[in-house]
């Protein structure tokens, strides 16, 4: 810059050489913006194909069962060998809450438990990877029909799968299977905590070496909800030991008390006092 060139912002015109220099900087900035924008947009992980049918209510008829999680069992028929087939749709509530509150209110209104009753509800479907959930919201007046007497005495097809040691991620099913993208992992951690603290049934997501996934419902050893115990282990890889039981199309893990712990990272205090009793995760199935 020579002596005659001096930029003063409040003057109408910048000196010619300075103006040209500024133009070059602006071009560089546009190139920077384009380069960074393109890179960041293209480097994002693929979003899942999960669907949340927002604003679209679907009527679903099925048998309501409160155990292992509040769910609707939709009968799809018997196969040629006489086996009954069901689609189990766990129920979730509006926002970051479970469905128990809505069901409890409806049961209170009707003055009987809906367990093992055939009910028709309207709600919002959310689904991904072969798993389907139904959001019921009291503002939608979800209950269409209920048979007062239990019409269905069959218990779920139960198969004991033994004790398993697995590494996976605890996630809230509503976000993962439909509402949010991404619905798991660190960015979603706080939301998953809020959902699970709000009563949503936690799901354990595992995958094999081919990237194929399985999803298991989590209960404690006694078969009761363990949402608050899971708070510190949500949305990151954790190891756990559990008794696995298959109920129709969902597997439930009865998690051994104190067996959950983080698996990775330079966690400063990775092992908590309550976890010391647990063995190393060398017993995973693969």
């Amino acid at each position: 810059m020579n002596n005659s060139e001096f930029y003063i912002g409040w003057q109408p015109q910048a000196p010619e050489r300075l103006a040209k220099h500024s133009q070059s900087i602006v071009i560089i900035l546009f190139l920077l913006i384009a380069g960074v924008g393109t890179s960041l947009a293209l480097l994002q992980k693929r979003f899942s194909t999960a669907r949340f049918e927002f604003g679209q209510l679907t009527e679903v008829k099925g048998i309501y069962q409160s155990f292992p999680v509040p769910a609707l069992k939709v009968f799809t028929g018997n196969d040629a060998f006489g086996n009954s087939s069901f689609i189990t749709m766990p129920l979730v509530g509006y926002g970051k809450s479970g469905a128990e509150g809505v069901i409890a209110q409806l049961e209170k209104n009707y003055r009987f438990s809906f367990d093992n009753h055939e009910i028709t509800v309207k709600g919002t479907l959310l689904y991904s990877d072969g798993k389907t959930l139904l959001q019921i919201d009291q503002h939608d007046h979800p209950l269409v029909k209920v048979r007062e007497a239990p019409v269905y005495g069959r218990k779920a097809t139960i198969a004991e799968l033994g004790t398993v040691k697995l590494t996976g991620e605890v996630l809230d099913p509503k976000c993962y299977f439909g509402v949010m993208k991404p619905g798991h992992g660190k960015p979603h951690r706080d939301c998953a905590i809020r959902c699970i603290e709000g009563g949503m049934s936690p799901v354990f997501y595992v995958r094999n070496k081919n990237g194929e996934a399985n999803y298991y419902l989590l209960l404690d050893e006694a078969g009761t909800k363990m949402n608050s115990e899971l708070k510190d282990y949500i949305a990151e890889p954790v190891w756990l030991e559990a008794r696995a039981v298959q109920y129709d199309d969902w597997i439930v893990l009865y998690v051994r008390r104190g067996s959950i712990r983080r698996t990775g990272g330079l966690s400063w205090f990775k092992v908590k006092d309550g976890d010391i009793s647990c063995g190393k995760p060398n017993g995973s199935l693969e």
Binding site: K186, R189, R194, G265, S267, F269
Partner: peptide, 25 residues
């Protein structure tokens, strides 16, 4: 990440994840 839950979103921001002792968490 915090609205429509069982606590105020601003409160939720500070009480949901409290793993200050772990770097990855």
């Amino acid at each position: 990440f915090h609205a429509l839950g069982n606590v105020n979103p601003l409160v939720s921001l500070f009480i949901s994840n409290t793993n200050y002792s772990s770097l990855p968490a």
